[in-house]
Design a protein around this nucleic acid. Structure first.
Lengths: 222, 222
DNA sequence: CATAACTTGCTGGACGACAAGCAAGCACTC
DNA sequence: GAGTGCTTGCTTGTCGTCCAGCAAGTTATG
């Protein structure tokens, strides 16, 4: 092993690693307990640094929060983007693509708990932070993609937007209310069978709903 | 006017009125800014009493929060109950009833902003407070009602539960994400036209989705 | 009826437990 | 020894909680 190649050991000083640790810890805590419920002391402890270090690297608590939101949303935006090109390049029928999009989005939200919770908290705060972020509008892209894929003419863009809103809502809700509504309905949100059944239910709903407003879609099923 | 009938003037001492003022103020503030973001000082100011009065009447902050949640959920439970008997007594066809239920629930959530926000915050906290409340299970009643109304046999109860989950999610989402996803899709959440169109979209989606699993439903439309 | 004894509604000061932010300082590398 | 990474001590402020106290009202007692 070359002597000059440093293996980053856990104790040595490393600004980049510290920054990431702090971002990780803060993301987790902000998502879990909210902005007001999280102290910089706690962030530091979880990140394995002292209570002053988050302030040292990020300036203030609100700046740290902004950095967390920006990183998290950037990752999500990227994930959505690659998912979209993959779907469009698949060469499948619109129905299959739509089902795949719903399925992927569903799983995605279950895997990205921090993102869901941060977004939810942002919504409750009136999107105070999101408004300050550079405009990206992945939602608009999603609508355009769906609209194009389903062969809706542009005049029906509103329809596509409504459909996207429904898909998001249907996938979103069980992820957020896994501790309230889902168990109240007798489901175990962590049961893989429930998840699979739920996903299938959403897909069926969306496909049934879309079938009547899709001029080009072949009605081969059933 | 009888002289012995006291008109409650704003300055005189009145425990009942103070309690209600405090509950009103606390509900508003907890819903708007969350548990951690609300101080008893603020609650007192908004209620028109002093800083110490919320504590005097409710003991502690968490006890006040519990009282707020209990009152709010009690009201909602009652509203759902009367809505249900009204729907079942209407004598309409299942399709019309289902559409009415969705429409009512949709409007209900828009009108009960505090409830939606409190519930959302509860979900983010893992339903810590809800678990302590006496079990009521209005969700189970809703499933039973829908199931019965649609003529699903009991073995298909899971299907009805999934349907209820979808209805709730579809109605819930635009109410929560009026500041994030809805505008990102180009909608104005306060525009009555959007609301009407959205409601119609949800109804169509649900009815299309349900039509194929409803043995007794006549397919008169279209 | 008058007044004393007591209760109830409500206030605001005091206190301890943190919080965020700042700045001085320590340790390590180049 | 200059600079970067990071810690620690301190300041200032806000929070929830406890509590002494007061004023208005109520009941008991003469």
């Amino acid at each position: 092993m070359p002597a000059n190649l440093k293996i980053s050991n856990d104790k040595e000083r490393n600004a980049g690693r510290s920054r990431e640790s702090i971002l990780d810890a803060a993301e987790e805590l902000f998502a879990e307990k909210g902005y007001d419920g999280t102290s910089l002391n706690e962030v530091g402890m979880r990140a394995g640094v002292s209570r002053g270090t988050p302030g040292y690297f990020f300036g203030s608590k609100s700046d740290l929060y902004r950095a967390v939101v920006e990183r998290c949303f950037g990752e999500v935006r990227e994930a959505v983007r690659v998912g979209r090109v993959r779907a469009l390049a698949s060469g499948e029928t619109p129905e299959v693509i739509l089902a795949g999009v719903v399925s992927d989005y569903f799983d995605f939200l279950l895997a990205r708990r921090n993102f869901v919770r941060l977004m939810e908290r942002e919504a409750l705060m009136g999107a105070a932070m999101l408004k300050g972020l550079p405009r990206t509008n992945i939602a608009g892209e999603a609508v355009a993609a769906i609209s194009e894929e389903l062969g809706l003419d542009p005049a029906q863009g509103v329809e596509a937007a409504h459909l996207v809103l429904s898909i998001i809502g249907l996938c979103w809700f069980p992820a957020v209310h896994a501790s309230t509504v889902v168990p109240a309905l007798g489901f175990d949100p962590d049961d893989p069978l429930f998840r699979e059944r739920r996903k299938q239910h959403v897909i069926e709903l969306v496909l049934h709903g879309v079938r009547d407003r899709m001029p080009l879609m072949t009605r081969t099923q059933r």
